[in-house]
């Protein structure tokens, strides 16, 4: 589904590696939690997968398509929820979703069906025809999610999706992620909040200073610590690395 082989990124001028020799393999039906402290390289990795920036080295394949070979085809399989708000906030929610559907070439009938389901699920119907700029943070995040799912992507990527969501919305989002995977798709999301990963993920990867320092099921990571919590696993691992 998603395969990274020895991917590195050096930002021009900064010189140091923001991502260093990262390899990942994400299977269908899997939720993958990408964990790491601030500045670890999570956003950089996600931006390389989504084609926003190009890796300095290494290969990225989405559904078997090399992103550097055929970027449009690879991107068609991705739904991306970025860590910032929609910039087109002068559009209405409906216009934004229309735009995304057009760009991803979604069949109008499918679009209407999915749109209806998602909008009612997120209770966004009242605000759907008003300008996004008037939405609350949570509503903006929801319309972002609808835009990312309107083409039922095989790979759904979210960058710090839970930040600023109330518990109820966060729960909704998690349910949606689970359902998305149950249809045979995959979810890849980043977070620095551990509880999120603990309950939801089939597999987690821990990244620190650009390097993947541990990977496995939540159970496996727990096993590497004394008290058996993911949190202390996370702390021990990142600390060892810092020494």
């Amino acid at each position: 589904m998603l395969k990274l082989t020895d991917v590195s990124k050096v930002y021009a001028k900064s010189g140091s590696k923001a991502v260093d020799g990262l390899s990942l393999d994400l299977k269908s039906g899997e939720i993958y939690g990408f964990l790491g402290p601030n500045g670890a390289g999570k956003t950089t990795t996600i931006k390389m997968i989504t084609g926003i920036i190009t890796p300095t080295q290494g290969k990225i394949e989405v559904c078997g398509v090399d992103i550097s070979r055929d970027p449009e085809e690879a991107k068609r399989n991705i739904g991306y929820v970025s860590d910032s708000h929609i910039v087109y906030d002068k559009l209405t929610g409906r216009e934004y979703v229309d735009f995304m559907a057009t760009v991803y070439g979604v069949d109008p009938a499918d679009k209407r069906k999915r749109e209806e389901a998602l909008v009612s699920r997120f209770r966004l119907a009242d605000a759907y025809d008003s300008q996004i700029s008037a939405y609350s943070h949570g509503m903006k995040q929801k319309i972002n999610v609808i835009g990312a799912l309107i083409h039922e992507p095989a790979l759904w990527i979210l960058d710090e999706p839970m930040t600023g969501l109330d518990p109820e919305s966060a729960h909704e989002l998690k349910t949606l992620m689970r359902e998305h995977c149950d249809k045979g798709n995959s979810v890849f999301f980043s977070t620095h909040v551990l509880e999120v990963a603990e309950k939801l993920c089939d597999r987690v990867g821990i990244i620190n200073k650009g390097r993947l320092i541990a990977e496995g099921t939540v159970e496996e990571i727990r096993g590497k610590t004394t008290d058996g919590s993911l949190e202390s696993g996370f702390l021990t691992l990142t600390e060892e690395e810092d020494r």
Partner: peptide, 8 residues
């Protein structure tokens, strides 16, 4: 940024 992430 967002336009680069879209299949355009």
């Amino acid at each position: 940024e967002i336009l680069l992430a879209l299949p355009v």
